[in-house]
Design a protein around this nucleic acid. Structure first.
Lengths: 239, 239
DNA sequence: CGGTGTGTTGACAGCCATCAAGAGCCGTGG
DNA sequence: CCACGGCTCTTGATGGCTGTCAACACACCG
């Protein structure tokens, strides 16, 4: 159940047998949710944190006029709201983008881990730091790139992350997001997302149909999005 | 020396006498830097993390064509690159925006703290989570607001954070940033930053001259920027 | 006193938002 | 079985926010 998380942490540093067992015993319940459901609402004060086992989820904020901005996209193995353990009050909501399976770890268990397993704690901390690094990269891309480059960058990032967890089949992977949701992610209108995708499609760079993304020319896509995976910190070393 | 950091952490949760002493003894050297210097470069693998004692600093990324995006602004008391402790390799640079005083804590000391002081560790973790929350808010503002709203939001945020550390005098505070740097922060051109500031000035909302910001109409500024300080998590509670 | 950095203003262009309409797909219900 | 509505994708027309280019004012400084 928490094997995906273990695998993910171990991409950054090895875990001891004991640490793995701690993680295996930390999660208390598994739940299935449909697409477009809220996992946590803005303003909530959850008593447990949520690990995504399967499917896609997003963190988002709503503005006064009802518009939405997605600030993170999460895939299987992501600790969607580890943050709430210490932030206490949610400053954003978390919603499902597809049907998902999630499992929960009580904050009390996380507190115990932070007392008894410093190295494991550092790796959990690290996983929130990587989220943070992704935020920074998105800021850079949003602030300084055209819509096409933004889209290319997002596809490259998802490609890397899906490959990391073995959900990528030779440049093809599943992304259960509508163009509206993509627009909310990149800060673009739905219409423009459509045009940008058409451009990438017509350029023979990516195919995107039925939630199935196929990268036809990875090198070119990386150039368009100025993609450099360094910020994902995919490197195993003592932490 | 680390009193500012202590004060800042204590705005979120009380520290024990021992924890405070640990922090007081953690920092090894203090250094003065001029404006526009790099503290850490992208790609570096620092062995210590940097606490800002005085002045302004920014985290930034450079693009291929030389354009820059600032992803965070840091003020006195901020732990500018606590991240490098676990990320190891810097995925962005950190530069001074003004003359600053900084002090450093060896990563080895942080590792020790993470072994021996779980509660203090959680508070350090928390401070990186708050950075992360700020990133998310910036993403929301960048993606879904006009330039004027972005600027208003940034001013509100800086106002809150400066007030928090006692560097705000009745709505007036120091912001040693050029309009170019503001543009790099908000993803705007220098020219447009100028126009937006002129608009806010002419509207009688803020005065901004000689790096001195004065908020004339805080309520109106908050409306323009849709500002809600919740994401700064300024609340003292057990963590 | 000239050079450099910063702020200011105007003209123009372009990327992208908005509005609108239609097509394809799918589940529901008659 | 077919009609219907809802959601998503697609495409065109129009407009506006913001970038780019350019020129100038001003302060500071060597």
């Amino acid at each position: 159940m928490s094997e995906l998380l273990i695998r993910k942490l171990e991409r950054r540093d090895l875990l001891s047998r004991e640490e793995k067992n701690v993680l295996r015993n930390a999660f208390v319940r598994t739940q299935t949710l449909r697409a477009d459901e809220d996992i946590v609402h803005e303003g909530d004060r959850p008593a447990e944190s949520c690990l995504l086992l399967d499917g896609f989820a997003a963190r988002y904020n709503l503005l006064a006029d009802g518009r939405r901005q997605i600030s993170a996209i999460h895939i299987a193995g992501d600790f969607v709201d580890l943050h709430s353990f210490l932030l206490k009050t949610m400053d954003h909501g978390v919603m499902t983008l597809s049907p998902v399976r999630v499992t929960f770890v009580p904050h009390a268990t996380l507190a115990q881990i932070s007392r008894d397993y410093p190295h494991l704690t550092r790796l959990l901390w690290l996983s929130t730091l990587i989220d943070s690094a992704i935020h920074r990269r998105w800021l850079t891309v949003m602030g300084r790139s055209t819509a096409t480059a933004q889209m290319a960058h997002l596809i490259c990032e998802l490609h890397c992350r899906m490959k990391e967890i073995g959900l990528c089949d030779d440049g093809a992977f599943h992304v259960p997001m509508t163009q509206e949701e993509l627009g909310d992610t990149l800060g673009l209108s739905t219409v423009h997302v459509n045009r940008v995708l058409a451009e990438l499609r017509n350029g023979g760079v990516v195919k995107w149909q039925q939630n199935e993304v196929t990268i036809l020319d990875l090198e070119r896509l990386g150039e368009i999005g100025e993609f450099d995976p360094g910020y994902l910190h995919l490197r195993q070393e003592p932490r």
